[in-house]
C-alpha cells in the first residue's frame, strides 16, 4: 500500500448547471521518499487534481464525480470535513504557485507559521515561535530569529516561497503537494528552491508531488512522471524510462516545443492547433486533432494503456511505433 493512492479520479466543473468533465479517470500512487511529477498545459486538470487531494474543492462549482483518494489506507472522500481538516495542513500540506498572494500581507510571517502550528499541535506560543525560527533556518532564510518578525512585503519572491515551504513543513507532513512551486521565480532562485525541496526530502522522507508545466523542472527533480492532456494521464513512467523513450506524440511534441539553451534549432517543432476548451467534445483520443500521426482509428476509438518498458504506460494506439 502506497502512502497516497489515487484511483480512477473523475472531476467535473458545473457550468450553468451542466457538469463539464475536467479530470477523466486518472490513477497514480506516491510513496514515502518518492517524488511524482505531474506535467501538462493549462486546462489539463493537473491543478484540479491537487486541489481534490487536499480537499480544497468544497464550496466551489467543482465536484469529484467518481473515484477514490486514499491516504495511508484511509478513504479521504468519505471523511467529514472536520476529519479532513485534521489531515490537511498537518499530515499533507500544499505549496501554492503565488507566494505573493498566498501569504497574508498584514501578519508577520512568524505569526502565520505559528498559527498553522497551533492549529494542529498543542504547543505553547513560545515553543511554536522557537519552532518557526527553526523552520525558517531549515529553508535557509538568513537571520531567522530576526526575519521571523518580517512582513511578507519585506521579503523577496524566493524568500516568500521559502516561507511558504516552511509553513507547509511546520507539522512534518508525510505528503507535500507543490503546485507550480517555482513558476513565479527566477531561474537561479528556482534552482535553490528545488534543491531545498530535495534536501528536505532526503532528511525527512516526505513524499512529494510536483505539479508543473515545465518538463525541465520535472525531469530534474522527480522520480516518476505523469503527463496529462485533457484530463487524462497520457503517458506515465519513471523519469528515466519515460525520457529515454518518449512514446506519446503529445509528450514528444511538448519536448520539441521547448527552445533549448544548449544547441541551435532553426524552427521549433510546435504542436499545431490549440489546447481544447472545456466544453469541447472530442471522440477517441482527445489529442487526435493536433496529432501528426493520427488515423481513423484515433478518432473512432479511445486508446487504453500500452506498456513500453516495465510500468511505462502510454495511451496511444501507436505507442510502440512512436517509441521506436
Amino acid at each position: 500500500m502506497a502512502l497516497l493512492e489515487v484511483e480512477n479520479l473523475h472531476i467535473a466543473v458545473s457550468v450553468g448547471g451542466v457538469l463539464q468533465p475536467v479530470v477523466r479517470g486518472i490513477s497514480f500512487t506516491v510513496d514515502d521518499n518518492e517524488t511524482l511529477g505531474i506535467v501538462g498545459e493549462s486546462g489539463c486538470g493537473k491543478s484540479m487534481t491537487s486541489l481534490a487531494i487536499m480537499g480544497l474543492l468544497e464550496g466551489t462549482p467543482v465536484r469529484i464525480t467518481d473515484g477514490s483518494i486514499r491516504y495511508d489506507g484511509t478513504e479521504l472522500l468519505q471523511l467529514s470535513s472536520k476529519q479532513r481538516r485534521a489531515i490537511m495542513g498537518n499530515r499533507m500540506a500544499m505549496i501554492f504557485q503565488e507566494p505573493m498572494t498566498s501569504l497574508n500581507p498584514v501578519y508577520r510571517i512568524g505569526d502565520q507559521i505559528i498559527e498553522s502550528l497551533r492549529q494542529h499541535k498543542s504547543i505553547s506560543k513560545k515553543a511554536a515561535r522557537a519552532r518557526a525560527i527553526e523552520l525558517l533556518d531549515l529553508v535557509r532564510i538568513p537571520n531567522p530569529s530576526e526575519r521571523v518578525d518580517s512582513f511578507p512585503h519585506q521579503m523577496s519572491g524566493g524568500q516568500r516561497q521559502r516561507v511558504m515551504i516552511a509553513m507547509a513543513l511546520s507539522c512534518d507532513p508525510k505528503l507535500l503537494i507543490a503546485d507550480e512551486p517555482t513558476t513565479a521565480l527566477d531561474v537561479t532562485v528556482q534552482k535553490e528552491v528545488l534543491e531545498l525541496m530535495s534536501d528536505l526530502q532526503e532528511r525527512t522522507g516526505t513524499a512529494i508531488i510536483i505539479i508543473s508545466h515545465d518538463l525541465g523542472v520535472i525531469a530534474e527533480t522527480c522520480d516518476k512522471v505523469s503527463v496529462m492532456y485533457r484530463g487524462k494521464i497520457v503517458e506515465a513512467g519513471t523519469t528515466e524510462n519515460l525520457f529515454e523513450r518518449l512514446a506519446h506524440p503529445y509528450t514528444r511534441g511538448l519536448l520539441n516545443s521547448i527552445p533549448v539553451v544548449d544547441h541551435d534549432v532553426e524552427w521549433l517543432e510546435a504542436i499545431p492547433g490549440r489546447v481544447p476548451t472545456l466544453g469541447e467534445e472530442l471522440s477517441g483520443c482527445a489529442f487526435h486533432p493536433r496529432c501528426p500521426i493520427a488515423t481513423g482509428l484515433c478518432i473512432a476509438k479511445t486508446p487504453g494503456d500500452t506498456y513500453i518498458a516495465g510500468n511505462h504506460a502510454v495511451k496511444c494506439h501507436y505507442a510502440d511505433q512512436v517509441a521506436s
Binding site: 531561474v187 537561479t188 528556482q190 534552482k191 528545488l194 515545465d214 518538463l215 525541465g216 523542472v217 525531469a219 530534474e220 527533480t221 525520457f243 529515454e244 523513450r245 518518449l246 519536448l255 521547448i258 539553451v261 544548449d262
Partner: peptide, 8 residues
C-alpha cells in the same frame, strides 16, 4: 541554473 532534460 536551467533545468536540463536528458533524453535521446
Amino acid at each position: 541554473a536551467i533545468p536540463r532534460i536528458k533524453t535521446r
